[in-house]
Amino acid sequence: MSSATEPEPAQLLVGSQVIGLRGGETVLEALERSGFDAASGCRAGTCCKCMLRADNPPPESQRGLRPTLRHAGYFLACQARPTGTLRIDQGEAPPTLQARVQRSEVVAQDVRRIFLVTAEPLEFRPGQYIEIFHPSGATRSYSVASLPADGVLELHVRLVPEGLVSGWLHGLEEGDSLRLRGAFGQCFHVADDERKKLLLVGAGTGLAPLLGIARDALEQGHAGAIDLVHGGLAPERLYLRDELSALASRWPNLRVHHCVLKGATKREHEGSLDEVAIRLSGPLGDTRAFLCGDAGVVRLLQRSLFLAGVPSGEILADPFEAAPV
């Protein structure tokens, strides 16, 4: 009935419901007219309360959002006047997948690097996190350090004293199976400006997402300087040093720094992680920062780097919240 030249009607798909858009109407107005209880506030693209997700939102409805949110398809319903069909994501949880342990190795006194292979492909961006199911049904989040092209999921698991899930994960052997789902999180590389300076700062196993983000940016041809700063309490707590050195010698725009609170040798800087990172990185006005690790450290980094000049919209943080033991 419709010819190839006739434009596709502007419409919304919400679950199985189809809502035709009237001339000039925004997504928010159409949802309200159709009886949906859509959140909204300023209706002018400022407060972000009406934020939704879709695969192909109109670009003008993504103005002012963080780069990772834009990449993931988030948009402001009050600013969106789509021309074709827009399927509104209703936030279904991703499916649970089976996986098995391919390899598990000790990389620091209390940290294991565990490689998993999933039965079906898992869609993720390096730096995002997955949820691991303990046989009891409890879940814990772990960031992915590997790239989709690696064909494995690399996790860095710190053994938490009395920890239910970390203790079990440390005891898993090659071939053991487990369940997981993902991926989640807004801390990953978006290739929107290949010259931008990237500053990656993390403490402890915060290295996992940073390693994934650095490799992802480099493989995608990022040309600007990338500074990765890994912090720990003492030199023996820092891990994967050889691998990071190898990565830095392969890519001239990557610099890797180590920082400890106490007892630095020639190979580490000594001091508070935020101060060392700011000192090493130079002017920060045109920098995107990725901050990962325990929540307390990440909040400190967030505040310090913001005060030192990183724009708030360019700070991508992944604070690890401790699970109840």
């Binding site: 506030g41 209706r43 407060c47």
Partner: peptide, 22 residues
């Protein structure tokens, strides 16, 4: 929470200068 605080500050600045803010 810094992100939440920045959103609130932005709404405040927008409001007091006569922009579209809730």
């Amino acid at each position: 929470d810094m992100d939440g605080q920045i959103a609130k500050q932005r709404a405040f600045l927008t409001f007091v200068t006569g922009g579209p803010a809730e």
